[in-house]
Structures are given as C-alpha cells and as structure tokens.
C-alpha cells in the first residue's frame, strides 16, 4: 500500500477502527491519517463506510474496536463534545442548520457566548459572525436573515463558517458540493483550500473525482469498510486513480 509520508506527525490518525450494525460489517479496520494543512479525500461507493467513519470521528457513533489518535492522544471513542473540544468539526451533507435563526445563531449553536453562562451576548456573537463571514470571503448580504432564506451555496458557507469557528484544527466535509451548481461548487472548493492554507487539516468525502483532484493532497479509496489504498494526488494522475477504483471492483 502506498502511504503519503508527511513531514510532521499527523493531527488525526485512526488504527483498526471497526463497526458493525447487526450482521453488517460497516467498517473492518480503518487505518487513516491526516496532517495539519493537508486536504485528505475519501472516495468510494455508497455503502463503502465513509459516512460511518466520519460519524465516528465526529463522535456520533462509537466504534466497536480500534483507536483514534488526536495529536498523539489515544481515544477508544469520542462523544460529540469531546470531538468538538479536540478541534474537530463536521460539515454534514444536510448542513445541520437551524433554518429559522440568523447566521450568528447558527454559527454559535451549542457554543454560545454568554454572560456568566446564562445570558446570551448577542451583539458580540453577531460581530464575530460578521467578521468570520468577511474573513472567509463568503457573499452573504444580510447576516440577520434566517438562514432558511439563503441559497444553497450561502447555506453551505454558513455551515463552513460554523465548522471553522468550532473546529479550529480539523474540518470534515461530507459531500460538500453534492447539490450545487458549478459556480457554487467552485466557491466551496476555494473555501476549503483557504482553510488548508490556514494550517487546518481537512477530510473531504466526495463522489466527484475531478473536484477531488482540484483540492485534495491525498486520496483514500474506501470499499466494504476498508481503506484499500491511499495515494497522493500529485503522484497519481486522475486516470490512474480511476483505474485503481475499477481494479478494486474487480478484486471482489
């Protein structure tokens, strides 16, 4: 198996992560790692275990066995709180937004700034949210509107802004461009690249190999709950990766 040799210890690594749902072995020993500043893509068919894997990283599922290493500290499992506290946040495919609330309320959901743990510091949250949206260069004309009134790209951007605010170290994207047009996808990919430039680690799950090649440094092919191969996008041409995926199919 090819491995990408990184110059520094990985921010996040997993070893032998396994998970069963009844008789279905969703994950059968996943070894994976990603470093700060690196964009790691996971590709694979529906049902290959990608979503189960990121749910384990975000603390929404407990693995049956295996170890998660975050900056050298080992964990048997994570809770959503631990995962967030470790600087990991996830942009889900459904975006997990509260459509009736404004941008600031969504960005700070679960991590509200308060006076004495009780009263919300609304003005401050709105100011920080505004700065964050400006920093990320996302075009949202009025951040006081409920996010339910936004376009798909703007909603995605709010979810990303939240992930950046909560996550700080590692942001996981589950199909970030799935329901988007060309222009909006390009904007989201640009946003993802800019996060990596800020020395954040990124895991991106994506079906579109062209988009993967646009942003990712490394690609892992996942199949039947295992990572079959991890390769660097710089060393492997797209055609070769496609061939690898087809070969993986034939091995079954």
């Amino acid at each position: 198996m090819d491995t990408v040799i990184a110059s520094e210890p990985p921010l996040l690594a997993t070893e032998g992560i396994a998970k069963r749902f009844g008789n279905i072995r969703a994950l059968q020993g996943v070894d994976f790692s990603v470093c700060a500043g690196q964009i790691a893509a996971i590709v694979g068919d529906n049902g290959s275990g990608k979503t189960t894997f990121i749910k384990i990283l975000s603390g929404n599922l407990r693995p049956d066995s295996g170890t998660i290493w975050i900056q050298g500290v080992s964990h048997a499992f994570l809770t959503p709180k631990q995962s967030l506290a470790a600087g990991i946040s996830t942009v889900y495919q459904d975006l997990s937004l509260d459509d009736y609330r404004d941008v600031a309320a969504n960005i700070f959901l679960g991590e509200e700034l308060t006076y004495g743990g009780l009263f919300l510091r609304k003005k401050e949250m709105t100011r920080i949210a505004g700065d964050l949206i400006r920093d990320l260069n996302i075009g949202i004309p009025d951040i006081t509107l409920p996010v339910g009134s936004f376009s798909g790209g703007q909603r995605q951007a709010v979810a990303v802004a939240r992930a950046v605010y909560h996550g700080k170290k590692l942001v996981i994207f589950d199909e970030p461009t799935a329901a988007m047009g060309v222009r909006e996808s390009a904007a989201v990919l640009r946003l993802i690249r800019s996060l990596a430039q800020k020395h954040m680690a990124i895991i991106i799950i994506c079906h579109n190999l062209h988009q993967v090649y646009e942003v990712a440094d490394q690609v892992s092919i996942m199949r039947h709950g295992k990572i079959l191969q991890t390769t660097s996008t710089a060393d492997t041409p797209l055609e070769q990766l496609q061939q690898m995926i087809i070969d993986a199919d034939e091995v079954d």
């Binding site: 929404n60 809770t79 995962s83 967030l84 009780l118 009263f119 919300l120």
Partner: peptide, 22 residues
C-alpha cells in the same frame, strides 16, 4: 436571552443538528 431558549427552538427546527453539536 438564554441558551435554553435557543436550544428549545432548535429542538423544533433541527434536533439532530443540536445533538451533533454536543
């Protein structure tokens, strides 16, 4: 003015999101 109020509304609009955020 409180987190409790926000979370109560979020339960109605997106309970799953609230759970994922810990």
């Amino acid at each position: 003015c409180t987190k409790w109020g926000r979370y109560t509304l979020a339960l109605g609009s997106n309970c799953e999101a609230l759970r994922r955020l810990g």
